[in-house]
Design a protein around this nucleic acid. Structure first.
Lengths: 218, 218
DNA sequence: TAGTTTTGTTAGACTACCCTAACTTTATAT
DNA sequence: ATATAAAGTTAGGGTAGTCTAACAAAACTA
């Protein structure tokens, strides 16, 4: 069985090399930054994970998950998203509170627990942030989605997920009047810095390029 | 914040020095045995916990919890029993399956989670094994109960809790036809070894002294 | 292409938790 | 009351995961 730390490294690699991130491999420093450890620390773990055949890695080269590593990572993601759904749906946690606790719960080991939790929640497809929950076989359907910054001026779209799950970002999202399934109309966009004016429920707001990059819509 | 390991030591001390155990202090070897570590290991931790003022301890002396240590231990026990209740009531876990998973869940840190979980469960008073769940203030009412081995021949009683929570014991209990609230009649007891004949729902069984010592009744 | 910056690696050290082996103190039993 | 047994402690060592400091390789840049 993997340690919590190993699981966290695999999960970080999964997120850094996903379709969403538009990359299939990453580097030591980037991984270290994602996990809030020093590159030297990440380097040690890379050797260990390579030894366990969970990642593809050669000295001074890029890192990617093997099939086995990806399987393990997806299992952690699955647990994370099921717990988030539980916290949100059953325990009245808010959008921005679920992530932190799910970071702990995702490491609980008990196949029966996850199986039963999923059943209890009614086999949900999406977590509270709009992300797809992988099924028990580790399959996750990819969503045809783009970022708010890719939507053209004058068009309307619907919020389906957020990229960043930090509490500060989510609180900001709520403040702008946005939630899952919110309808967003693009009023205008500044060429200069990408600042975008949007309209949500008749209320207009200005949001930054960075903000728009972190909102997924269809 | 305490580590999972520290929490486990405090919890073990709580159980070893409870009313149930009829003792208010314990020794290094006993503690080590309860945690499945060597005495040398427990000794290191005792020094650490004393330093944190969570236990009363002097070299070559007995160990007991301070008020602060007891508070922490009770919080862990509270979480453990609430999770057991959740698993049993909401996720269709059986009597003998809940303990192991709760051993992991009890270390999740989130005051809101426990608060909401308790509310979700309807502020239960007892866990699936019949043990009292401490309230949010850390108060736990003690139960007027005795062991089955203390009941006199010819008398009847009701099962309110089990002492041992191991899967093997609980499966044995179920096999004899017992569960929470079962009515038990004492048919006879051997002077020689304490073997007792009981009747549950019209079915007679012979149980050992050790078995009877681990059944709490009123 | 040569210098500089970025990225990645190695060496050595620290903490938490665990171990074994040797030792000391306390308790028990005749 | 002393020998033996039981309980408890200390010293020294191991692994996982983290760090800093120094170094090596790769990638930029001018």
């Amino acid at each position: 069985m993997l340690s919590q730390t190993e699981e966290n490294y695999l999960k970080a690699l999964f997120h850094l090399t996903s379709e969403t991130a538009n990359k299939s491999e990453t580097g030591t420093n980037e991984l270290a930054a994602a996990l809030n450890v020093k590159p030297a620390t990440a380097n040690d773990m890379l050797k260990k994970l390579k030894e366990k055949k969970l990642i593809n890695y050669e000295k001074y080269g890029k890192v990617s998950l093997t099939a086995a590593g990806r399987r393990q990572a997806i299992e952690v993601v699955r647990k994370h998203r099921l717990w988030e759904t539980f916290l949100y749906e059953k325990l009245q946690f808010s959008w921005d509170e679920v992530h932190e606790v799910a970071e702990q719960l995702e490491h609980i080991y008990s196949p029966k627990l996850i199986e039963q939790l999923e059943k209890f929640l009614g086999y949900p497809e999406f977590d509270p942030h709009g992300d797809v929950i992988p099924n028990a076989k580790g399959e996750l359907k990819l969503q045809a989605r783009k970022t708010l910054s890719q939507v053209m001026v004058g068009k309307s779209c619907k919020l389906v997920a957020v990229k960043d799950n930090s509490a500060s970002f989510l609180q900001y999202v709520v403040k702008v009047g946005l939630g899952l399934s919110s309808k967003i109309k693009l009023i205008s966009r500044q060429e200069f810095d990408g600042t975008t004016e949007i309209e949500v429920n008749g209320k207009k707001s200005m949001v930054s390029q960075k903000f728009a990059d972190n909102i997924f819509v269809v």
